[in-house]
Design a protein around this nucleic acid. Structure first.
Ligand code: SF4
Ligand code: SF4
Lengths: 141, 141
DNA sequence: GACATTTAAGATAAAGGAGTCTGAAATATG
DNA sequence: CATATTTCAGACTCCTTTATCTTAAATGTC
């Protein structure tokens, strides 16, 4: 898998939150239940997003978490960056050291092309765009 | 990283072996030294390839390992299959369950395109092709 | 203020991948 | 046959990721 499980959970959670328009703070417990994830694990993951200022949170009754900015200005790559970092988009496929563009292996061009393509995809896709184009009922499960 | 470390080590080792034309069996100790890998770890990895009949081995002095078939008929995907399996080429990017082609998320088409492209790359590239197009001195390190 | 709700923080545990080590089996050489 | 070489087999350790659990802090409601 390209993305870690934590990263995928983070993406799914932010998509769920984005789909809940007209609501202020969403309890983590609700998100965990709807997405069928461990509450405590998801809590820790979303805390990471909150510390990175991608989300905001509020304690106490009626509290929960929410996106820090409008979801149509949040790109998938931002969530990925917080969770996994961006190394995957510059890493070599074969992990060979001492490789450079001057004398690349036969895989390099093809690999670099796809790597860039995937990177661009994450850089241009916002949370809103995904939510608006998906059957919202499918976000859970 | 898309491929596991073991898989990358396996690929690098098979490339090194392929580059050693005119030689019968190559000792694992030599490969490990040249590629700067742990001998015992590489031994275990190459045993896997041998058990999968991708390589053959011979014990005792002058023994070692060799590719089971001509390297120009061995495709990268075969090594990857033995080490990591082929699930990565059908897996969903986001690991979402209950996803299908009828009602895909906005990422699906782009992701599937690149996934297929990478798969094809591994399916069409032989060990010989890589070795013939790379600076052999760079295989070590 | 008492109490219930909810996130924050951090310790702990379980699982898998990565890497190490030891001894057994095979084989060439003398 | 004795010895050195080399793969085979499996146990074992180490590290990272994944997941669980416990306690504290904040906050709304009565
Ligand atoms: S040349 Fe090949 S091995 Fe080197 S960085 Fe590019 S893809 Fe990786
Ligand atoms: S539709 Fe999206 S989430 Fe579903 S399998 Fe395709 S890429 Fe994954």
């Amino acid at each position: 898998m390209i993305l870690s499980k934590s990263c995928v959970y983070a993406i799914r959670a932010t998509l769920y939150i984005t789909a809940q328009e007209n609501r202020e703070y969403i309890p983590v417990k609700e998100i965990a239940k709807e997405l069928n994830l461990s509450f405590h694990f998801l809590t820790k993951i979303l805390q990471g997003l909150t510390n990175a200022s991608l989300m905001k949170s509020y304690r106490g009754p009626n509290g929960g978490v929410a996106m820090a900015r409008s979801a149509d200005s949040i790109y998938l790559i931002e969530v990925i960056d917080v969770m996994d970092g961006l190394d995957i988009f510059s890493e070599c496929l074969l992990g060979l050291p001492n490789c450079n563009d001057i004398n690349p292996c036969p895989l390099h061009e093809e690999w670099a092309k796809n790597r860039t393509s995937i990177h661009k995809m994450f850089q241009t896709m916002t949370l809103s765009q995904i939510v608006n184009n998906i059957d919202k009922l499918r976000l859970g499960l």
